[in-house]
Every structure is written in structure tokens, then in C-alpha cells.
Computed example of a mutant assay.
Amino acid sequence: MYGDPATVRKILTEAGDTWAVVGLSSNQQRAAYGVARVLQRHGKRIVPVHPSAESVHGEQGYPTLSAVPFAIDVVDVFVNSDLAGAVADEAVAIGAKAVWFQLGVIDPAAYERTRAAGLDMVMDRCPAIEIPRLG
């Protein structure tokens, strides 16, 4: 498993409150939209990262992680698995503390690179599902 319960808990409670949500747009039909809202309701500041740089849930959007002008604690990834490794590498480059690959986003090589760089990481999990499990 890529992300044991202790790592999930650590990311959700200790990694920090600024979460870049990569793939988040104003499309309410996409999973990222609802998950970002759940994160906000649980005290996280969400930062939409999408090529269109749309503002979502009252937060300014940016086209890439490197365009965000402040520190990001956690990078939550809602892109196809083929693209996820590059996002994880960018998360390492910007100094994020953790990377979270959403349900269905799987790249074992990216997981290994990210962990080797010292970041916490979970893969194929959803924080909106995991938060209620914290109790």
C-alpha cells in the first residue's frame, strides 16, 4: 500500500494547511471540486492549480505549482497517472512537505522518487474519505 494510516494521519493533521489542488477547475462535476470544498470545510486553504488558472471556492488559481507565489504544504493531485509523476517532481522542486495522489492516480516510480526526496506521500486515496476516519 502506498500510504499507511500513520502517513495519512500525519499529512492530514501535521503537514500544514495550504493545499495545492492540481487539476482543480470551476467544473462542479469533477471530483476535485467537491474534494477541495471538503478540505476547506476542514480548515485547509486550497490553491487551485490548473492551466486555466481559474479562481475556485474563492481562491485565486494558478497555471502551475511553480507559479504559486507562496509556500505550499501539500500537493493534492487530480490528473491522469501519466501526468502525475511530473506533478510530484514539481512538488519536490517547490519544497512541498507532502504529495497526495487521488483515487485512481497511480505511479509507483513517482511515489519512490517523492519519498526518496524526503516528502510524505500517499497514493490512490482521497482526503475527503480519510478525514472522517480520523475521528
Rank of each mutant, 00 (worst) to 15 (best):
V92Y: 00
L12W: 07
A88N: 09
L83C: 09
A98S: 15
D120P: 00
H50A: 10
F70Q: 11
A98W: 01
V68I: 14
A128F: 13
R30Y: 06
N80G: 15
R45N: 08
T7L: 03
R125P: 07
A98G: 01
A98Y: 00
P132A: 09
R30T: 08
R41F: 07
D73W: 12
I94D: 05
A36R: 07
P63Q: 11
M1W: 14
L24M: 08
D76L: 07
D89Y: 02
R45A: 01
A15V: 03
A86L: 09
Y33C: 05
N27F: 04
D4F: 09
A110I: 02
A53V: 10
S26T: 14
Y62M: 07
V75Y: 08
V35W: 00
A86R: 13
A110Q: 05
S55A: 15
A91R: 06
Y33V: 06
D120L: 15
I46A: 08
G58N: 11
V35P: 02
P132N: 02
T13R: 13
D73L: 07
L65F: 10
G23W: 04
A98Q: 02
W19A: 05
E112I: 09
V38I: 11
I46K: 01
S55V: 02
A15F: 13
S52K: 14
V75H: 05
G43C: 01
V47L: 03
A20K: 00
L65Q: 13
Q40R: 12
K44I: 01
I106M: 15
H57P: 08
E59R: 14
V79T: 15
A31N: 03
L103R: 05
S55E: 15
F70H: 13
D120G: 08
V8M: 10
S25P: 10
H42A: 04
H57N: 13
P69T: 07
P5L: 11
L119Q: 01
N80S: 15
D82M: 11
A15C: 12
L103M: 11
S55I: 11
A117C: 12
G118F: 02
D76Q: 14
T114A: 02
D17L: 13
M1G: 14
G104Y: 01
I131M: 06
L12T: 07
A84L: 07
D76I: 04
I131R: 02
P108W: 07
P5Y: 08
V47K: 03
G104H: 06
F101T: 03
M1R: 12
